[in-house]
């Protein structure tokens, strides 16, 4: 599907959608959104780009294979769950900074867990789709 309009559009849509997905991730704890939806939106951004420009060029932008996002995401989630054990609290206890950070808002272990989910979702979706797309 070679369309000059779509190709040009995705050049701008990709960063905007990614930004939006990150926005969804951050606001998840207070408003509709979260790591799962955020991850899906980010995947859609890349999928859209790949539909317009071909999967190979999207892979070039990504730099790494999307499958490598899966262990990174799982590791972040697991660490955020285990972190309270360092403070002698049972695992999975929510930890929060006292003061909100400008722009981002409150930061806690739940946010890092969500970040892990976000990365895993991107990794999983892109791995499945791109593996199938590249299979000749």
């Amino acid at each position: 599907m070679k369309s000059a309009i779509l190709q040009t559009a995705t050049r701008y849509l990709l960063p905007i959608l990614l930004l939006f997905s990150f926005f969804l991730l951050l606001r998840g704890h207070y408003f509709p959104g979260g790591g799962f939806v955020g991850g899906l939106v980010a995947s859609i951004a890349f999928v859209l780009h790949s539909l317009a420009n071909g999967t190979a060029s999207t892979m070039k932008i990504l730099g790494y294979k999307p499958i490598s996002l899966i262990p990174i995401g799982l590791a972040i989630s697991t660490v955020s769950i285990m972190l309270p054990m360092l403070f002698n609290l049972p695992p999975m206890t929510g930890l929060w900074f006292e003061e909100p950070i400008p722009v981002i808002g409150m930061i806690g272990s739940a946010l890092f867990f969500d970040l892990g989910v976000y990365l895993v979702v991107i990794g999983v979706v892109l791995t499945i789709l791109f593996t199938i797309a590249l299979d000749e």
Binding site: H29, G33, I81
Partner: peptide
């Protein structure tokens, strides 16, 4: 859990496992 979005709080805190 210091969250206002109940769905998300359930996902990332109450039922995180």
């Amino acid at each position: 859990a210091k969250g206002k979005n109940v769905v998300n709080v359930i996902l990332v805190d109450f039922r995180v496992a």
